[in-house]
Simulated scan of single mutants.
Amino acid sequence: MLWHAADGRVLEGWVGGDPDGPLVAVLHGCPDTRHVAMTGDAAARAVGVRLLGVNRPGYGRSAAHDSSHGSVADDLAGVATELGHARFAVVGMSVGGGYAVATAARHPDRVTALGLVATQAPGVRTESVEELVEELAPEFLAWRETVDPGDPSDDALAARWLTMLPPGDAELVRALGPAEIAASVREALAEPDGYLRDAALLHRPWGHAPVEVRCPVLAWFGELDERSTTDAAAELLAGFDAVEVVVRPRSTHLATLVAHWPDVLTTVRDLSED
C-alpha cells in the first residue's frame, strides 16, 4: 500500500491482522522493511489486532528523505490517522526501537504502549548524519555487492541471505520460502539510502529521551542475540520511568520477535486497554 507524508513524499507500507482490532505499528530493523510485520499477520488475526508496517524513507518505494527519528515518528502517526486510528501501540524491532521511542514521545496522547524488541542502546557519535553516511558507505556498499540484491534468481538470492543470518534466525526465515525472502531483501537493499540513513542515526543519540515517554513500556531481549545483548539492556532502558523486561531463552536476534509474535501482540494489546 502507498500513502503520502504531510510534505507529499510517498510512503510504502502494509496493513494486516484483524481489520477491526486496535492498531499496532511495527517499526522495522535495518536492513529490513514492512516485510517483518507481514510475518506477524496470522498472530495478529488470532489475537485481534490490526498490524501496520511502514517502510522508512529510502526503503522500497518510500521516497528517500533527510529523515530523523522525529520525522519518521510523524510519518507513522500520519498513516495511523489515514487508517482511522486516533490511538495505537508501537513496537520497535532492533534499530526501529529509537524510532518507536520518538513516536511515543512526540505523540503521547495517541501512543498507548511501547514495545522494544532486540533494540540497541542509543549511539554516542556527534558527527552530522551526512558525515556518518559518508564514513559508513564504502563498507556497506562492498557488503551489499556480496548480497547482490539485483540477482534475478530468487533461489540464489535467498540462499545467500540465509548464510548471513544466525542459525536460529535462518530457520525462521527459511520457512518463508525463496520468493518471499528475495522480495524482502530486494526491498531492503535495492537502494542504499534507507540503510545508510538508519546506520548513521544508530550511531547518534536518539532524537527523544526515554524520560519523554509516558505510556507503558516493555522490552524483550534474546539470550543468544549478539546484536542487542542483555548486558547492554541497562544502558538502553535507563531513563524510562518503569519498564518490564523479558529475556527470551535460546533466542537470537530476529527470533526475539518473529518466534514470539502472539506474546508480543497480546501484551501490547492488553496494556493498551488498561
Results as ranks from 00 to 15, higher is better:
Tyr195Pro: 02
Gly194Val: 06
Trp220Glu: 06
Ala104Leu: 08
Thr266Leu: 14
Glu191Val: 09
Val15Tyr: 06
Thr163Asp: 15
Thr33Met: 06
Leu189Ala: 11
Ala259His: 03
Asp274Gln: 14
Phe140Thr: 09
Val101Ser: 13
Glu171Gln: 10
Leu83Glu: 09
Ala179Phe: 01
Gly92Val: 12
Gly96Thr: 12
Trp143Ile: 00
Leu51Gln: 07
Ile181Met: 05
Leu136Ile: 10
Glu82His: 14
Thr103Asp: 03
Thr39Cys: 01
His69Glu: 04
Leu132Lys: 04
Gly177Tyr: 08
Leu218Lys: 00
Pro22Arg: 10
Asp225Gly: 01
Ala118Asp: 10
Ala113Met: 05
Thr81Glu: 15
Leu132Met: 03
Gly177Ala: 11
Asp263Pro: 01
Val124Asp: 12
Arg174Thr: 13
Val90Pro: 07
Arg45Cys: 06
Thr146Trp: 03
Glu273Val: 11
Ala200Asp: 02
Glu139His: 09
Arg125Asn: 10
Val24Leu: 11
His260Leu: 02
Ser62Met: 09
Leu52Glu: 09
Arg214Thr: 13
Ala188Asp: 09
Asp75Ala: 07
Asp148Val: 02
Leu271Asp: 09
Ala100Ile: 15
Trp261Val: 07
Asp20Val: 00
Ala156Asn: 03
Leu52Thr: 10
His28Tyr: 07
Leu141Ala: 02
Leu136Gln: 12
Ala199Arg: 07
Pro122Arg: 13
Tyr59Gly: 05
Trp161Leu: 00
Leu201Pro: 01
Met1Cys: 08
Val47Ala: 13
Glu145Leu: 03
Pro249Ser: 02
Pro138Ser: 11
Val26Leu: 14
Val49Thr: 14
Leu224Ala: 12
Ala37Asp: 01
Gly222Met: 10
Ala219Leu: 04
Gly58Glu: 14
Ala142Ser: 03
Leu218Tyr: 00
Phe240His: 10
Ala102Asn: 12
Arg174Phe: 03
His85Ala: 15
Asp155Tyr: 02
Gly97Leu: 13
Ala142Gly: 00
Arg204Val: 04
Pro31Ser: 08
Asp18Arg: 00
Ala158Leu: 03
Asp169Cys: 04
Met164Phe: 09
Cys30Gly: 00
Asp109Leu: 04
